Computed example of a mutant assay.
Amino acid sequence: VDDWLVQFCETLTPQALSRQISIPWPDRTLTETVADTLLHVFLHGQHHRGQVHAMLSGTSVPPPQIDDFILADNGEARVEDLAALGWSEARLTQ
């Protein structure tokens, strides 16, 4: 799913991001832009990563680094994670 989402996002244009989509909800249908929907998806994922990080902090399993991954001047914090994905720092700056 992550690979599909990355590929989907890499193809988006400003026009595609502003397109309105319908989202079935339990009691109605929401209408949102693709951009706002993706923002929700990414923030929701971050929320759950934070929950897992907090739970692991209370165990003997060290939680992964999640705080500094996206900072431009902190590439060393993401080297192993990028390598596991088969990515490089250069891919992030394309």
Rank of each mutant, 00 (worst) to 15 (best):
A54T: 08
D73A: 13
L56E: 01
E76H: 14
R91D: 15
A90W: 04
A54S: 11
V52D: 00
F42E: 06
S18N: 03
L5C: 01
F42T: 08
D36P: 09
L30P: 10
V34F: 12
R78W: 08
M55T: 03
G58E: 10
Q65K: 08
A54W: 03
F42R: 04
Q15I: 10
A54Y: 02
V41C: 10
S22C: 10
R78S: 09
L71H: 09
A72S: 09
P62S: 12
D2E: 08
Q20W: 07
E32V: 14
W4A: 05
D3L: 10
A35T: 02
A77T: 14
D3C: 03
W87L: 15
V79T: 15
Q7D: 06
L71C: 04
A83I: 12
I23K: 12
M55V: 10
D67G: 12
D81E: 14
A84G: 13
I23C: 04
A77M: 05
P24Q: 05
L17S: 05
D36F: 07
F8N: 06
V41T: 08
Q7S: 06
H53W: 11
A72C: 03
W87R: 15
D68A: 15
T59E: 02
D68F: 01
T13C: 03
L71Q: 07
E80I: 03
A77F: 03
V52P: 00
C9N: 04
E76P: 10
Q65N: 12
S57M: 06
W25K: 08
I21P: 07
L30M: 13
F42I: 15
D3S: 04
L85Q: 13
Q65F: 06
H47W: 06
W25S: 12
G58R: 13
T59H: 02
V41I: 15
E89Q: 14
L5D: 03
Q46V: 02
W87K: 15
L92P: 12
E10Q: 06
L12G: 05
R78T: 05
V1E: 08
R78H: 05
P26Q: 06
P26L: 04
